[in-house]
Design a binder for these strands. Structure first.
Lengths: 90, 90, 90, 90
DNA sequence: ACTCCAATACTTTAGC
DNA sequence: GCTAAAGTATTGGAGT
């Protein structure tokens, strides 16, 4: 295998392989840090909104609904109502 | 309430309140898009690594371990060892 | 500390303490086994229902809804609709 | 439609279908009650242990470890150690 | 298409 | 009471 060879199996643990592994891990760690920073930002927006009197749970529901495909949502709604009907919940 | 008033309670649904709500939702949606982009990047790194012969599960374990170690280890370790000792797990 | 003393701190690791610790762990493990068995049963019911043509997601929603307090549910619904209204989703 | 037919599609909502749906929901609800009862028991054991001076967090860790060990350890361990070796974590 | 597992979101509990 | 942490449940993606 030309290009690479992994840190695996019976292969000698070459310095190159080590560096490649290290590089992978560090790339992921950097990306996860960025991801965490954004998660924190999202949390902050919700917290701030709550401070301004908004209902966080409802906000989350809105965000979730807007993400869904309108068709799928309608279809799910129909089934749900059928079941609720059958159970006397409507 | 001085500054604004939310879309809530018995308050008239002012255009201002609507705009504020819309703004909150859109900020969150923008952040979630960024977050998703990064999640995809992370996924890509794993997929590419797998293509180069790495064991993805092990990579994930490494990442997790490096994240957890600095935080807790030393603290819990002591009590834990006492208990493990008592249970013959050591 | 009347009755016993735990496996902790500077106390000598008495045989009694060991046995008590072991007993606690085993009680929990037994309970967790039972709990897992029930979780599996629930999973089975859903799987079987799916095989009979039911929509599992909708079934889960029904179960969740029936668990909720009707008043709270109604209230949450109201807020949600206010927000949806303000965002032109209704 | 020999055996049953679910509360679904264009089918007339027969009493039978309703009963079957109701039966499914109630079976799940009963199982979830049992499950909750056991969860509560587990909680009680931890609470009682805490009252006797045990460190709950450590107890949970022990339980978790004893659960995981037999399953995976040996398998993942090998690859993992190779990687950790390469990263200077060992 | 279906099963399985990892990741996310939600809920509840403990601690300040 | 609120923030932080755990546990639990649901969702989404990967593999077969």
């Amino acid at each position: 295998m030309a290009t690479t060879a992994a840190v695996r199996d019976d292969e000698p643990a070459t310095k190159f392989a080590k560096d490649q592994l290290k590089s992978i891990i560090e790339r992921i760690e950097r990306l996860e840090e960025e991801k965490k920073a954004i998660s924190d930002d999202i949390r902050d927006v919700y917290a701030e909104s709550k401070g301004n009197g908004y209902d966080v749970k409802a906000l989350r529901t809105i965000v979730r609904m807007r993400k869904q495909d309108p068709n799928e949502r309608a279809e799910a709604e129909t089934i749900l109502e059928t079941y609720m009907q059958a159970l006397g919940m409507l």
